[in-house]
Write a protein that binds this DNA or RNA. Structure first.
Lengths: 155, 155
DNA sequence: GCAAATTGATTCATACTATGAACTATATAG
DNA sequence: CTATATAGTTCATAGTATGAATCAATTTGC
């Protein structure tokens, strides 16, 4: 009996796709929970937190650059930056060479918050990875790389 | 030289946590893209689509049950159901035994849409998994199971 | 049997994420 | 030195979500 008669090589068992769907959904919800907790812990709306994180290592950014990196429209960035400026985390000034563009820099307070966010995120990642054996860890990362490439190709 | 002097067993290399963060973020964004495309393709706001999917296999549901399963507050469900009812996908009637509760059932149109959504999602999952060898697939699912358990424990 | 408490659903005010069109001001190309 | 293109902002609109207040129906406890 030829197994390919029932399951040609190009098809995947339905229970595998269902299991995959369940796992992906679970991981997605974990990510959402983490994002929500993070926003609460640092008292920042998620979009502002994500925006602040772009300044890591960067001296200054323009709204246009931020819009590109966050994958949102530039009018959205105006609002996000408004929030960060009003909270004293970002400083907004005009570019002397081209007064159309805004030069955005983190303030000292902003840098402090950013460092704390990075630390908390690294700690969270460490705690997750610490629940596996070193062998599981390296194998997981290898498989996630494959999955990410596959999803990016399809989605 | 003892490697444990620099890297005690409980700690994880920083480049591993960074790699993990990058992978998780990439997968999260893929999921978001997929959700957005799905909503667009079926001309339903994501929350309504997710709600409709709860009716798969179920004869009827109450707003309370839906709120529990979607993990949102019940007033939110009122709005979501309003949308599905106005689109003719869900039928709302009073429970004869307890006239406080709403009995919600999918309409014929709703059932058709639900089937199409499930089919599209299964096809997407298949395409993703088809980009791997069968061995990679089973190993991936095993590792995702470990990751999901770890993240659920931490996050 | 009925007042008091509980429960299911809805309405409303509020906050956050995001888009796209319209507009202002500045800079550059012809 | 007008045309046009670019950077940023404002505003209207849509979607996701919460929580307080309210209404109606159902239980509970005398």
């Amino acid at each position: 009996m030829n197994q390919f008669a029932l399951h040609p090589p190009s098809s995947i068992a339905p229970d595998q796709t269902e299991r995959f769907q369940r796992l992906i959904l679970g991981l997605y919800q974990c990510c959402q929970n983490r994002i929500q907790r993070q926003a609460l812990a640092f008292d920042l709306p998620d979009a502002e937190l994500r925006c602040l994180r772009l300044f890591d290592g960067k001296n200054d950014l323009t709204p246009k650059e931020i819009a590109l990196q966050m994958g949102v429209v530039k009018s959205r960035i105006t609002k996000i930056i408004d929030g960060l400026v009003s909270k004293g985390l970002i400083h907004r000034s005009r570019d002397p060479d081209d007064s159309r563009v805004s030069r955005l820099r983190v303030t000292t307070r902003g840098a402090g918050k950013l460092a704390a966010i990075n630390q908390s995120l690294a700690a969270s990642n460490e705690m997750i990875l610490a629940r596996m054996t070193p062998a599981q860890r390296t194998a997981l990362l290898r498989h996630l790389e494959v999955l990410k490439a596959s999803m990016e190709a399809v989605v």
